[in-house]
């Protein structure tokens, strides 16, 4: 396993898309804020900064940052799918099996990569977020981050589960483009339609519905909703169960698959 991880690190280092994906993800949050939230608008004849209106303190701004940053998962999924398929399409996994690497180790190597990417995504969010908050001159960055630590952990779980879901799609499809489109449409449309057709308890247990609830939605406050400082326990538990199911599917399919 140690040898495989060594090789995975070497491959990762020399894969340009890895660095591009990390840079894109890191640039994604300030870019969106720069475009949409730095705009001034006027209300009752008064010019107002959109930042000040939506996020009057460090805590609320941190919630917006997590909400916006969560869409960056698709950038990392695109990289993950490309990296995984490159190994399968070029017969690299096949060669690894010949070289004595077990299928369990191959899956474990990919899960470690997903863990690293999730941790990296969360760390980058904290760094970029702290930078943006300090640039706005808000005080209490540390206490805001601490207060929303459960959501920060939820953010990591969100990335972890979402990327594992992408790997599940990929073990069946083995195509970067189709797998990405599958995850993208499932995440953004399919579950919404399913819940709209049948908003029962079962529909509430769908993966993306619960994963989305791990991320704070500060916009709900604008329409009179409550914004909690911690994710709902049910969503955390359901997401953790889905994470386990995704892992189980990946390992079961990989162990039976012909390479």
């Amino acid at each position: 396993m140690k040898r495989l991880l060594h090789v995975e690190i070497l491959k990762l280092r020399s894969y340009p898309l890895f660095w591009i994906a990390i840079l894109l993800y890191a640039a994604f949050i300030p870019m969106l804020f720069g475009i949409f939230l730095s705009a001034d608008f006027s209300t009752e004849g008064q010019e107002m900064d959109l930042f000040d209106f939506l996020a009057p303190n460090a805590g609320s701004l941190w919630q917006y940052l997590m909400f916006v940053g969560s869409y960056g998962v698709y950038v990392l999924i695109l990289f993950l799918l490309s990296f995984s398929n490159r190994d399968i399409v070029n017969g690299v996994w096949r060669q690894y099996i010949i070289e004595g690497v077990s299928r369990n180790e191959l899956v474990a190597g990919r899960v470690v990569l997903v863990l690293v990417l999730s941790a990296l995504a969360t760390l980058l969010l904290v760094i970029v977020g702290a930078f943006i908050i300090s640039q706005k001159g808000y005080s209490g960055i540390g206490s805001a981050l601490w207060e929303l630590r459960a959501f920060t952990a939820g953010y990591a779980l969100y990335f972890l589960s979402f990327m594992m879901m992408a790997l599940v799609v990929n073990v069946f499809i083995n195509s970067t483009t189709l797998s990405f489109l599958g995850v993208f449409f499932w995440g953004l449309f399919v579950e919404g339609v399913v819940r709209w057709i049948d908003p029962t308890t079962i529909s509430q247990l769908l993966p993306v519905y619960n994963l989305n609830r791990l991320i704070p939605n500060p916009f709900s406050a604008l329409v009179g909703g409550e914004v909690s400082s911690v994710p709902e326990l049910q969503s955390v538990l359901v997401s953790a169960v889905w994470l386990f199911i995704f892992g189980f599917i990946i390992i079961t399919v990989t162990r039976r698959k012909d390479f």
């Binding site: 495989l4 070497l10 491959k11 070029n90 017969g91 060669q95 690894y96 010949i98 070289e99």
Partner: peptide, 27 residues
């Protein structure tokens, strides 16, 4: 046991010495 099965399985854009080094690590 070591094998060449059907076709050589290597990454297309990576230097071949680097890829042999990776096999050496796995071995």
């Amino acid at each position: 046991v070591s094998a060449l099965l059907e076709k050589p399985n290597f990454l297309p854009k990576t230097r071949i010495s680097d890829q042999l080094n990776m096999i050496a690590i796995l071995r």
